[in-house]
Computed example of a mutant assay.
Amino acid sequence: MTTVLVVDDQFLIRAGLVGLLRAAPGVEVVGEAGDGAEAVVLAAETTPDVILMDIRMPGMNGIEATRRILAQASGIPPRILVLTTFDLDEYVYGALRAGACGFLLKDSGPERLLAAVAAVGGGDALFAPSVTRRLVEAYARQSTGERPTDLNALTSRELEVLKLIARGLSNLEIADRLYISEATVKTHLNRTMTKLDLASRAQAVVIAYESGLVVPGR
């Protein structure tokens, strides 16, 4: 059973998400919040497996809520899936940096939503290649003024895996591409995240582009 907390300031959208999730087998909605501050409190009380997190909300936004929820989590932290209208919203970048595991378009169909919750709840990140490309290319065009992350600590195989993750491939697709097991892919990814002090697969995608390991458009 995957437990889910739904966070959105628009009542009708939130109610629709809750209704859809409650009707799905294997999913339990443990709470719903209308803003970031309420989400932080409910996340601590209900310890959900997955949080559907809106970004633009009055008071505390989804970025700050994501940061606080993950900082206060004891044990296994919740997997946070950002909800966005995806007009290349600059707030999405902040959410990924804060530790969100991926993003979902608000106009996605029911099947896509349920698949996203299942994927994130299972420990994967939600990055459809076409959407990822648009997001990271726009992100990479922004000048952050930060020094690129040093990837010298990574092995050649870890660099290969990181490149493919940044291209939007799933663990299974990476395993097929490199002729290794899916478990080995997870091992390489975990080692990469430990070496680079990353909290999520989403942050690994951002780092791959920021460092120049992967170049937008190629």
Rank of each mutant, 00 (worst) to 15 (best):
D8N: 14
L12E: 12
L12I: 11
R14F: 09
A15S: 07
G19Y: 08
L21G: 04
L21C: 07
R22M: 06
A24M: 08
V27R: 15
G31F: 15
G36T: 06
E38A: 09
V40D: 11
A44R: 15
A44L: 06
E45G: 03
I55M: 15
M60E: 04
G62Y: 02
R68D: 06
I69G: 12
I69N: 14
L70R: 08
P77D: 11
L81D: 06
V82Y: 05
V82C: 02
T84L: 07
T85P: 00
F86D: 05
A95E: 04
F103W: 14
L105Y: 10
L114H: 07
A116T: 01
A118K: 15
G123P: 09
D124K: 14
S130T: 07
R133W: 05
N152W: 00
A153L: 08
R157N: 02
V161D: 10
N171R: 12
L172T: 09
E173W: 01
I174Q: 11
A175V: 04
L178R: 13
I180G: 13
S181E: 07
E182M: 08
A183N: 11
D197V: 07
D197M: 08
L198G: 06
A202E: 04
V206I: 15
I207V: 15
A208I: 07
V215C: 05
P216L: 11
R218N: 05
R218H: 10
